[in-house]
C-alpha cells in the first residue's frame, strides 16, 4: 500500500518525514560502516531483484496468486540496515518512475515499509535465529513486515481524516492477514531453497546481543500498530474520548479541525513512542558499556 500525495494531512506527512529522514541518515551511516566494497553492487542488484521478483506469481488457490514483497527476505540476507536502505531506494524509484506512492508521502511510506516493515521482519528472525524456532521466526518476520506496514498505512490515512466503512475495513484486514501469511510462507520457502544452495547467503544475525531491547522494540511496533487498529475500528470511541477531553462534541468531531488536532496528537504519540524506545536503547547501551 503506497500512499499517494493528497491523502495525508500536513501534520501526518511532515511528522513522519521528520522521523524518517534522520532515521534513514542513521541507517545509511550504519550500513556504510559495515560495508565491504562488493556489497554496494549487491545492494543495488538486490533492489532490482525485488522489483523483478514481483513478476513471479505464487498460486494460493481459488485462482488467485500473490507475490513477494521482500522486506523480511532482504533483512535476512543483507542485514537490517542495508535492507532498509535498499527498500528506501525501491520506494523512491517507485514514487518517481511508477507513480506508486507520492513524493511528500515518501516519509510515511518509507517509515511504514522500509523502517518499521524491515525491522518487524528482522527482529523475530534475530531473536529466534539460534533456537529451534528459527523457521517460525522467519515466517513470523515475513508476516509482521507486511502486516505492520499495512496497519501503519491505514492508521495514517485514518489520522488524516480518510474514513473507511467498517465492513471494508474488515475485508481489508482479512486481505492483509492473508498477504502477510503468504509473505511469511514465501520468505521461508525461498530462504530454505537458498540455504540449500549456499548457506552463506543467509546472513547470520549480528552476535552482539541485546534481546531485551529488540523484544521491547518489537513490542512497541506491535503496540503502535494495535493502537492504530483500535483507533480505526472504533472511531466512535475516539470521538468520545475527544469529546471528554474538551476537543469538541460528537457533531463537530466530524469536521476537519478536531481531526487536525487528533492527527497532531496521534503523531506526537507516535514520535514520543519512538523517542522513548531510542532513549531507552541508548541508556541500555551506555549502561552495558559502563
Amino acid at each position: 500500500m503506497h500512499i499517494p500525495d493528497g491523502f495525508l494531512s500536513t501534520p501526518v506527512w511532515a511528522g513522519l518525514a521528520t522521523v524518517s529522514v534522520p532515521s534513514i541518515g542513521m541507517l545509511a551511516r550504519r550500513a556504510q560502516a559495515g560495508l565491504q566494497d562488493s556489497r554496494l553492487p549487491l545492494m543495488g542488484v538486490m533492489g532490482a531483484f525485488v522489483f523483478a521478483a514481483q513478476m513471479i506469481n505464487f498460486p494460493v488457490g481459488i485462482g488467485t496468486s500473490g507475490h513477494l514483497v521482500g522486506g523480511a527476505l532482504l533483512a535476512a540476507t543483507l542485514g537490517p540496515a542495508p535492507a532498509a536502505i535498499v527498500m528506501t531506494a525501491i520506494l523512491i524509484i517507485q514514487a518517481l518512475v511508477f507513480q506508486d506512492g507520492g513524493l511528500l508521502a515518501l516519509g510515511a511510506n518509507v517509515f511504514n515499509m522500509a523502517i518499521a516493515g524491515v525491522l518487524a521482519g528482522y527482529w523475530p528472525y534475530r531473536l529466534l535465529a539460534r533456537t529451534r524456532g528459527r523457521n517460525f521466526g522467519i515466517a513470523l518476520g515475513g508476516f509482521l513486515s507486511v502486516f505492520v506496514s499495512a496497519i501503519l498505512c491505514l492508521g495514517e490515512l485514518f489520522l488524516s481524516g480518510v474514513r473507511i466503512p467498517n465492513h471494508a475495513l474488515g475485508i481489508g484486514l482479512i486481505v492483509f492477514c492473508i498477504t502477510g501469511i503468504l509473505e511469511g510462507a514465501i520468505t521461508l520457502a525461498v530462504l530454505g531453497s537458498l540455504e540449500k544452495m549456499n548457506p552463506r547467503w543467509l546472513r547470520a544475525p549480528e552476535t552482539e546481543g541485546r534481546p531485551a531491547l529488540i523484544l521491547l522494540g518489537l513490542f512497541a511496533l506491535v503496540l503502535v500498530s494495535a493502537g492504530f487498529l483500535a483507533a480505526s475500528a472504533l472511531p466512535d470511541g475516539l470521538e468520545r474520548v475527544a469529546g471528554l477531553a474538551g476537543l469538541g462534541d460528537k457533531e463537530t468531531a466530524a469536521v476537519a479541525e478536531p481531526w487536525l488536532r487528533q492527527a497532531a496528537l496521534g503523531l506526537a504519540g507516535l514520535t514520543a513512542t519512538f523517542l522513548a524506545c531510542y532513549l531507552v536503547g541508548r541508556w541500555i547501551v551506555r549502561w552495558r558499556n559502563a
Partner: peptide
C-alpha cells in the same frame, strides 16, 4: 541525500530491466 542511498538507486535503476528480463525468460 546520503551517498549510499543514491548509489543503491543508481544500481537498482540500471539493473531493473536486466533482472526483469531474466525473470521473464525464466517464466
Amino acid at each position: 541525500v546520503p551517498r549510499l542511498l543514491v548509489d543503491v538507486m543508481h544500481f537498482t535503476w540500471r539493473y531493473i530491466a536486466v533482472i526483469s528480463a531474466q525473470a521473464w525468460r525464466m517464466r
